[in-house]
C-alpha cells in the first residue's frame, strides 16, 4: 500500500520502514528482514514473506551474524532493531562479519540520540562515530520520515553495507514536499537556502535547524540549512560550496556526541581541503550520560536545543571575518 502524507504532518518513520520493506520484498525475492525482537512495524513484511523474516529474539550478535551468512549466499538482509544495541553489542559482527567482506547488509534502527526517554542505556549517542570508523560502511541519519523509504530503496543497489539511523520513528514531521529535493545517498540536501551562515545537521534535528533559520529570518538573517543525511561518504563538494556561499560561517547541530559525528566529519574535510572558515561552532551532546526527560528538554539541558542553535548561529554570523581581523 503506498504511503500518503501531507507536508508538515506527523508521520511514523517506522510505518514507512514497514511499508517500504513490504514493497521491496515483492521486487527483490532475495530480500530478508531480521530483527532482535523489534518486529512490531515489520508485520506486513512478516505476514507477506514469512519465509524471509527472522526474529531471533534478544540476540543482536547472532542477528547480524545470520545476516552476514545470508548475504554471503547472495541475499540482501535488512537488520532492524534498536541502534544502541545493534551498534554496540553487535559492533564486532558489523565490523568483522559484514564490513570486512563488504556484504550488502542494511542496518536500520531507532533511538539515535537523546530520544525516547529511556535513559543512557537506550540512547545511541556514539553510534555515528563507531559506524563512520568502519571501512566499507555507508552511514546515514534520516529525519524526514518519507526519506527513510527513499534511502532504503536506494540502498538496494549498494554493493556493501549501510547504516540507517532514525530517532524514535513514531511521530516525525514530514519536512519536505514530495519531489522537492533530489534525494541521493552521498549528497547533502539544501533544505533551506541562505547566505549568512550554514547550519549542517542530520536526523531529528533537521526540523529544529529549520525552525532556528525561520526565527533568525525574522531578524533579517539569511541562514542556510543543510540536511547532511549521509555522513559517510560525506558530501565534500557541498561543504566547500557552503563555505563559499555563506561567508565561511558554519554551525553543526546533531543529536549525537558533539565530537565524533557530523561535526568531526565536516571539520576533517575543512582541514584536509584547507577550506578557510570565519567561524565554526558545534552543537551536540557533551561527554555526559544524559538523564531522563523528553527530547526537547534534554536538548535544551545539554546545550543543543532551539535557543542554543539560534544563539550559536548569531555568534558565527557576528564573528569577525579573517579579512577584518588579520
Amino acid at each position: 500500500m503506498p504511503v500518503t502524507f501531507t507536508f508538515g504532518e506527523m508521520l511514523s518513520a517506522r510505518s514507512v520502514i514497514g511499508t517500504t520493506l513490504a514493497e521491496l520484498g515483492k521486487t527483490h525475492d532475495n530480500l530478508w528482514v531480521l530483527t532482535p525482537d523489534i518486529g512490531a512495524t515489520l508485520v506486513e513484511f512478516q505476514e507477506t514473506f514469512p519465509d524471509r523474516f527472522v526474529d531471533v529474539g534478544l540476540a543482536e550478535q547472532v542477528c547480524v551474524g545470520i545476516a552476514a551468512g545470508l548475504a554471503y549466499d547472495g541475499n540482501i538482509p535488512v537488520v532492524s532493531g534498536m541502534l544502541p544495541f545493534l551498534s554496540m553489542r553487535a559492533l564486532e559482527q558489523i565490523r568483522t562479519d559484514v564490513c570486512y567482506p563488504n556484504l550488502p547488509v542494511k542496518i536500520i534502527g531507532t533511538h539515535g540520540g537523546l530520544v525516547g526517554n529511556g535513559g543512557s542505556t537506550h540512547y545511541a549517542v556514539e553510534d555515528l562515530a563507531l559506524m563512520c570508523a568502519l571501512t566499507n560502511m555507508t552511514v546515514t541519519s534520516v529525519g524526514d520520515p518519507l526519506m527513510v523509504g527513499e534511502v532504503l530503496r536506494q540502498s538496494m543497489t549498494l554493493p556493501g553495507p549501510i547504516y540507517i539511523r532514525l530517532a524514535v520513528g513514531k511521530k516525525d514531521k514530514v519536512l519536505y514536499e514530495e519531489g522537492q529535493h533530489d534525494v541521493r545517498i552521498g549528497k547533502g540536501i539544501i533544505a533551506r537556502d541562505g547566505t549568512d551562515a550554514t547550519i549542517f545537521t542530520h536526523g531529528t534535528t533537521v526540523a529544529q535547524a529549520l525552525q532556528a533559520a525561520e526565527d533568525l529570518a525574522a531578524d533579517g538573517r539569511s541562514v542556510r540549512v543543510v540536511d547532511m543525511f549521509t555522513l559517510k561518504p560525506i558530501d565534500e563538494a557541498l561543504i566547500a560550496q557552503c563555505a563559499d556561499e555563506t561567508g565561511g560561517r558554519f554551525v553543526v547541530l546533531e543529536d549525537h556526541l558533539a565530537y565524533g559525528g557530523l561535526a568531526t566529519r565536516i571539520a576533517d574535510v575543512v582541514a584536509d581541503r584547507g577550506i578557510r572558515l570565519n567561524a565554526f561552532e558545534r552543537l551536540g551532546i557533551p561527554q555526559v550520560y544524559a538523564g531522563f526527560g523528553d527530547d526537547e528538554e534534554l536538548r535544551d539541558k545539554h546545550g543543543y536545543g532551539l535557543a542554543a542553535t539560534v544563539a550559536a548561529t548569531r555568534r558565527v554570523i557576528a564573528h569577525p571575518s579573517w579579512a577584518s581581523s588579520h
Partner: peptide, 22 residues
C-alpha cells in the same frame, strides 16, 4: 567466509543454512 574472531562462525553458518533451506 572471513573468520578468526572467535564465536563468529556459527552465526554466519546459521544464515547460510537458512538461505539454503529457503
Amino acid at each position: 567466509a572471513s573468520t578468526g574472531s572467535l564465536g563468529h562462525g556459527l552465526p554466519i553458518a546459521v544464515g547460510m543454512a537458512l538461505s539454503g533451506r529457503h
